[in-house]
């Protein structure tokens, strides 16, 4: 999907994207191009990127190329999607224990669009954490392993 969405393959690129994306939600999808769940998510991201172009910038990041980020965000499962706004990490309460990232694929395009809108509106009001508008039934559940946290 790298031909449909811009790809970041180094820490410097990711740093640059975070620091330079202003007044828009930055969406970073950590995963691998060949992974089938990543492909599903990329399909949703690429199809919605045009509609959300005024609200969000979407990048795909190879999880193996940026180990610093992988470790920092504790990415154990791919795809994991992380949101930023004006260089600030945006947390979302999905109803799961982890608010820092969305693990797995969105079920529908509308889910993703709704989430971006909520993050955008929340961030514009100066919030750092927002409530996810996605139906809990559509959020994949998984076991997290917090190591000593």
């Amino acid at each position: 999907m790298s031909f449909l969405l811009p790809k970041l393959s180094s820490k410097r690129d990711v740093d640059h994207a975070i620091k330079t994306t202003s007044e828009k939600v930055l969406v970073l999808r950590f995963g691998r191009d060949e992974d089938h769940v990543c492909l599903q998510l990329d399909d949703i991201l690429s199809k919605t990127s045009h509609d959300l172009s005024k609200m969000a910038t979407i990048y795909i990041v190879d999880v193996d190329k940026v180990p610093v980020y992988t470790r920092y965000f504790d990415i154990s499962y791919i795809p994991s999607t992380i949101f930023f706004f004006n260089g600030q990490h945006m947390k979302v309460d999905y109803g799961s224990p982890d608010h820092t990232k969305f693990v797995g694929s969105f079920k529908t395009k509308q889910d993703f669009i709704d989430l971006i809108e909520v993050i955008y509106r929340g961030a514009m009001r100066g919030k750092l954490i927002v409530q996810s508008p996605i139906d809990p039934q559509n959020i994949p559940r998984y076991d997290l392993l917090y190591q000593g946290v």
């Binding site: 691998r32 769940v37 193996d64 791919i78 795809p79 990490h89 190591q147």
Partner: peptide, 19 residues
Amino acid sequence: GPCLTFVGHQEMPVKGNVH
């Protein structure tokens, strides 16, 4: 449902992580 690819448990760096 679709199961996700596991990329291994991330060892917490010395400086800590997002949590």
